[in-house]
Simulated assay, not measured.
Amino acid sequence: MAVAAKDTAGSAAGTKAVTAAKAAVKKAPAPKKVVVAPKKATAAVKGAAPATTVVKPSRDESRTALVRRARRINRELAEVYPYAHPELDFENPFQLVVATVLSAQTTDLRVNQTTPALFAKYPTPEDLAAANPEEVEEILRPCGFFRAKTKSVIGLSKALVEEFGGEVPGRLEDLVKLPGVGRKTAFVVLGNAFGRPGITVDTHFQRLVRRWQWTDETDPDKIEAAVGALFPKSDWTDLSHHVIWHGRRICHARKPACGACPIAPLCPAYGEGETDPEKAKKLLKYEKGGLPGQRLKPPQAYLDAGGRPAPPLGAA
């Protein structure tokens, strides 16, 4: 009888243990299903299920890993945008510095529609320096903030005549002394008119390098320094073009086209935008002649056979 009692107690204890184990299993949270960016951009195009959750890389990414990832992103973008260039029309350094000053708070397309009349009437710094402000304001009205911009372009023209013999200087320290010219404008001019490397930290550049976790800085000068340290100086100008073009065409501020992005596997922010390939393709923006402001409808807005965004119409 004692043995039977022990067996009964043992059986009861075993049953309780099993029941407790089952309850624990039921209470345990189910493992989360994670989806990462496709290994290649073409993976999304071939019909892979759209990603809904992304595991972001650790903030503990080593310096070496960050440099390698950043440079690989730049190489990928160089293949996507081999024709990347300043999207402001200009024929000489003077036209470029004026056009860049005018591009603040407006589109390059609008500036390119405005500057032909401006430069036809005032082709040299001497001409613009002696211009009637009211007449210049009327020409620049479509660019917005036309009074302030008129003051800047006339002021910088006078400075060029009085201090630099009517020539645009090729040094950063001289350019930033001109009215309306900051480091961003100066680097645009240095990189594209004089072939001297510089990083252009505009709104697109700031947004993307933070989205890619290249830096956490918010001050443009600090962003310039942080990103510049990741690349050889010879890459700076082209890097600026690649990032800015990507920001205008694919990696938009509010709704990036993640499902059509060629650098999705390298992007820690993949999934913040539309990941469905077909829906993402509709978000791509292409501009005639490389100018911003015009969205072409399909079939022009498409991914090419290699799964990369096709160049805009008119691109060389």
Rank of each mutant, 00 (worst) to 15 (best):
R59T: 11
L313V: 12
L178G: 01
F145H: 11
H204I: 03
L160F: 11
D7I: 14
P50V: 06
P309E: 07
F187I: 02
T275F: 12
F119Q: 02
A37Q: 02
R207G: 09
E61I: 15
V3K: 15
P299L: 02
L239T: 13
Q105C: 00
V80E: 11
P142D: 08
D219I: 01
C143S: 09
L284F: 03
K22M: 06
D127H: 10
Q294L: 04
W212R: 11
I223S: 06
A12I: 04
S11L: 15
S62Y: 10
L109D: 15
P133H: 07
E91D: 15
L266E: 05
K184N: 04
K46L: 12
K16R: 10
L230M: 05
K149F: 09
P312I: 10
A225I: 14
D127Y: 05
G180Q: 05
R248P: 00
V45W: 01
S157H: 08
K33I: 15
V168I: 07
R248T: 00
V243R: 03
K222T: 09
R295M: 00
L156V: 01
D89Q: 05
L140F: 10
V3A: 15
N92T: 12
G191H: 09
D238P: 04
K222R: 14
T107D: 02
G182A: 11
K56A: 12
